[in-house]
Design a protein around this nucleic acid. Structure first.
Lengths: 211, 211
DNA sequence: ACTCCTTTGCGTTATTCTTACACAACTATT
DNA sequence: AATAGTTGTGTAAGAATAACGCAAAGGAGT
């Protein structure tokens, strides 16, 4: 029997401007950034606590995934605190209630974080990259019209290697359809066609890797 | 700030008699089986607590993997109890201190378990199967001489499908070498050659699946 | 209009991997 | 010696992958 507090952290990931981003919060008066979090109450489970964070942003909590627990004895000097970290993949359009103190950050450009939030994010990012190898999860990031170059950039970041543009297209073609529309803001270069994912369920790894 | 107890569970998996097995404990006077476990103390982390369970069996704790937390409010009626589940893959020869009240069970034939230990095992087994797709993890189960039929049986259970014997062999041949010895107890049929894994590191998925 | 530059779309080829088999080799049993 | 059960080896068709060349569509500058 121990007396402690249990923190629940939520890593909210999305794709914005061709980059994988995470939602962070700057608390008033603090110089560092924070992950959205909540203290577990005696009458709730970790999952329901994480769900309440989702509710705050009006996000569906049905794809919540537990990442890791952080329990080093001294991670909080004042009192024994154990943290459980969750992640959620969303598309950026589903982010409501997105107030001024919240901001999306490129996962490769995380600002100075409070306490050990930086390592919690690092762990969650590793977890995210595994999940994104499953096409069913990747779909969450691209619910509406997307172009092949956009999709490829995310995959290249996940796999951490460059992929041939033409071979990449061939791999994904069986799972998408053209909308007929084209990209609007090319800033030079040929406009890209817009695609959407088909509804088929796909439990297949398109790239033969395990991470 | 809540007062609760935190349980650490350890799912110890091994391969024995061509089956994936888990180490369970029957406590004196109890009619049900238990997972090896430990209550978290105020001055230790979850990892170090799980390591202490490993020590009891003289098992190296360097491959401990966190599986899941179980935090339903009523999972223990008497007091608020949160469980964190770990898993460890070992080869059966490394199991010392293996006393009479402990027993290995086929993961497809789990006995009647105490409390929610059954669902903790189910979750850990799912976790294990993912891990075994990584050949580096599979090696732990087959440290010494093994035959192709033995290896294949484990893979068929993980993938939950039958694999062609000859194609399976071709896939794994680049990663093993013959010892020159042959299987001793064939009970009829041609004796199988014995193999060992090469030392190469392999972060590749030999079967194109995500689970 | 024309050229240059950039980006996207499409196709071709050689190579590798996968799949589905047939058949021989080895052992124990009868 | 014949049979049954199991393992080892080969081969050929088909699919997937990797490495390219090149055309098409737009913007910017002249």
């Amino acid at each position: 029997m121990i007396e402690c507090q249990i923190e629940v952290f939520l890593n909210i990931f999305t794709v914005d401007d061709d980059k994988i981003k995470i939602l962070l919060l700057k608390k008033e008066g603090s110089s560092t950034w924070h992950l959205p979090s909540r203290l577990l109450k005696i009458d709730e489970s970790l999952e329901s606590s994480a769900t309440k964070i989702c509710n705050k942003f009006q996000l569906k909590a049905d794809m919540l995934k537990e990442c890791h627990t952080f329990s080093e004895v001294n991670r909080n000097k004042e009192r024994r605190t154990i943290a459980v970290s969750y992640m959620l993949m969303i598309n950026k359009y589903s982010l409501k209630n997105y107030e001024f103190e919240y901001q999306l950050f490129d996962i490769n450009n995380i600002p100075k974080m409070a306490f050990d939030h930086g390592s919690i994010i690092a762990q969650a990012v590793a977890c995210l990259k595994k999940e994104l190898l499953n096409l069913n999860n990747l779909k969450v990031f691209f619910p509406a019209d997307f172009t092949f170059p956009e999709l490829q950039k995310v995959y290249e970041e996940v796999l951490n290697e460059n992929i041939d543009r033409r071979n990449f297209r061939k791999k994904f073609l069986p799972f998408v359809y053209e909308t007929g529309e084209k990209n609007e803001l090319p800033s030079g270069g040929r406009p890209a066609k817009l695609y959407r994912f088909l509804d088929k369920d796909l439990e297949r790894n398109l790239f033969n890797v395990i991470k």
